[in-house]
Amino acid sequence: MYRIKELLIFAAAIASLMLQSPATADEEPSALDRIRERGVLEVAVYNDFPPFSFRDERGRIVGIDADIARALAKSLGVSAAIRAVGADESMEDDLRNNVWKGHYLGGGVADLMLHVPYDGAFAEENDRVIFVAPYYREQIVVAVEKGVGASLDPLDYFSREKVGVELDTLTDFYLLSAYNGKIRNQVVHFSNIGKAVAAMKRGEIAAVAGPRSEIEFALGDLADSYAVGPIRMPGLRTSGWDLGAAVKKGNSALAEEVEKAMTQLRQQSSLSKIFANYRSSYQLPSQTKLVGVESNGRISQRD
């Protein structure tokens, strides 16, 4: 514990230094200053990603992440400009394209990106950004018709029944390889969870496995007819992950503000309200700390 304590003190010292010394002469104005000056916080969210960020009938970007972006901007006293971005091959690419470098096709970066994993190991590998403001814990769950759910033995159940997954996801790969591939042939692929749930509603498959928020949103009004819960996933390192925000390294003042604003949103139950608006049950993130790589390359975490 001593080490962590030391880190905390170190980080706090750095933070207080940053707070006390405003930009020196040759330093550019901080990102936060620029945001306040322009009055706009530019937030990157994924396009076509219900219930987090998608376009409504009128073409506006709506969803949990979009609402959180607007709420954060409001807390900062500015308006939100939401940039719906396409997902590249990996999160590292997305961070490069949208947070610290910009895509090679141009367009620059956003001030903030939402829906980024909040994970110490991941932060260590991505030291060009600061990860802040964890706001949700996503979890792999299975939805099955009520009555089956209580005593679900995945191996037994899925060796008989078809389970729908979204292509190229953790759930997909896990189920394809779990139990030495014994249930591989029962896995049915869909391009998104919405389509998988629709197939389940039509009775074409018995279950859908995937992230809780996406499944709950897709179930919609029929949520009561299905049991949604986590299953045992032996062999898998994790079946849940925290989501937070990322800002470019160096924009510490902005990171602090976003962290504060997000904490406030959580404490005011604004987050659970936003999730409820999209028929998703809010899950508290497991950690609520600032994860960043300090100049010495160490990970600091503080409450």
């Binding site: 994970d119 996801t169 953790l170």
Partner: peptide, 13 residues
């Protein structure tokens, strides 16, 4: 990699 992330979600990569 036992865990990487794609579109913000965990992924075996």
């Amino acid at each position: 990699e036992p865990i990487t992330y794609k579109k913000g979600a965990a992924y075996l990569g």
